[in-house]
């Protein structure tokens, strides 16, 4: 491997200064490297690597009012061990527990999982149902902007980030008292260390026997992680009878756009998404 140019800023301000000096070159933002190192031979040798993993401002988990702010370079294991996340965002814990291994979770960051923009990114479906906001820093304007996570993705491995922009924070609204049910499940080749063929995240609030509201997002069955708004709308105010569940399964099947690839087939992905919804709604009844 040829010599690649690289920088490791310690602050966001340092990042901005480095960027100004090389803005004409192609840039590779590097965090934990668990995605990038696997494909390191395909990386452009002309790209300048900027390793953001040493920027202290991008680390840590803090509660601010009714929101949790997570620094983008926080690792998956740091999230898993955080009492704040365990208490306030259990759906994220459920998702991270299914991700990779101890070895990978010690290195992989949440910002990297989002920045990688995979439709199979396992932190993304929970963050989408939680209506998470993403804070982005632009070295060109020296300003931050905040956008809803669902507008970050423009296709598989593609984001709406402009050149040089980095994800700085993941901002999750807390409405712990508002919902009492959360669900995450992914289906892969095996139980552990597996890439998602299809996944479903849900949060819901019920009153007596009826669903007051439910928020659903599917992974790996559309070009980007997607909210299932038609299914959500249909389930609103409904009692979960077998007929309602069957109808909801049909609606969700029409909301997803799966493909056949090396990991699974289109037909199987439709089938397991319907079954995941049934599993989720059954868990909601039993609750």
């Amino acid at each position: 491997m040829n010599s690649m140019q690289y920088y490791s800023p310690n602050t966001i301000n340092e990042y901005r200064k480095i960027y100004s000096g090389i803005a004409d070159k192609s840039i590779l933002i590097f965090s934990g490297g668990t995605d990038l190192m696997v494909g390191r031979h395909e990386l452009s040798q002309d790209a300048v690597i900027i390793d953001i993993s040493g920027i202290a401002e991008l680390k840590g988990i803090v509660k601010k009012g009714d929101k949790i702010h997570i620094g983008s370079c926080t690792t998956l294991n740091e999230l898993l061990c955080s009492h704040k996340i365990q208490n306030d965002i259990p759906i994220l814990i459920k998702a991270i527990k299914t991700m990779a291994s101890e070895q990978i979770r010690n290195r992989a960051t949440i910002g990297g999982n989002i920045g990688n923009a995979s439709p199979a990114g396992d932190t993304i479906t929970p963050l989408v149902v939680l209506e998470t906001k993403i804070e982005i820093f632009s070295p060109e304007s020296n300003e931050v902007r905040t956008i809803p996570i669902k507008t970050l993705f423009s296709g598989p491995s593609a984001t709406t980030l402009e050149k040089g922009e980095i994800i700085t924070k993941i901002i999750i609204p807390l409405r712990k008292d508002e919902y009492i049910f959360c669900y995450f499940r992914k289906i892969g080749q095996r139980n552990a260390m597996t890439i998602t063929k299809a996944s479903l995240s849900a949060i819901a609030k019920c009153s007596d026997t009826k669903i007051e509201w439910i928020k659903l997002a599917t992974g790996s069955v559309s070009p980007v992680v997607k909210r299932m708004s038609k299914t959500e709308e249909f389930l609103k105010g409904k009692e979960l009878t077998p007929a309602v569940i069957n109808k909801a399964k049909e609606i969700i099947a029409n909301e997803i756009f799966p493909i056949t690839d090396i990991r699974s087939t289109k037909a199987f992905r439709v089938l397991i998404t319907k079954n995941l919804l049934k599993d989720c709604l059954s868990a909601l009844i039993k609750r």
Partner: peptide, 11 residues
Amino acid sequence: LVNSCLVPAMH
């Protein structure tokens, strides 16, 4: 615990 195949020298 980490995978040494995924840790770059710069870290």
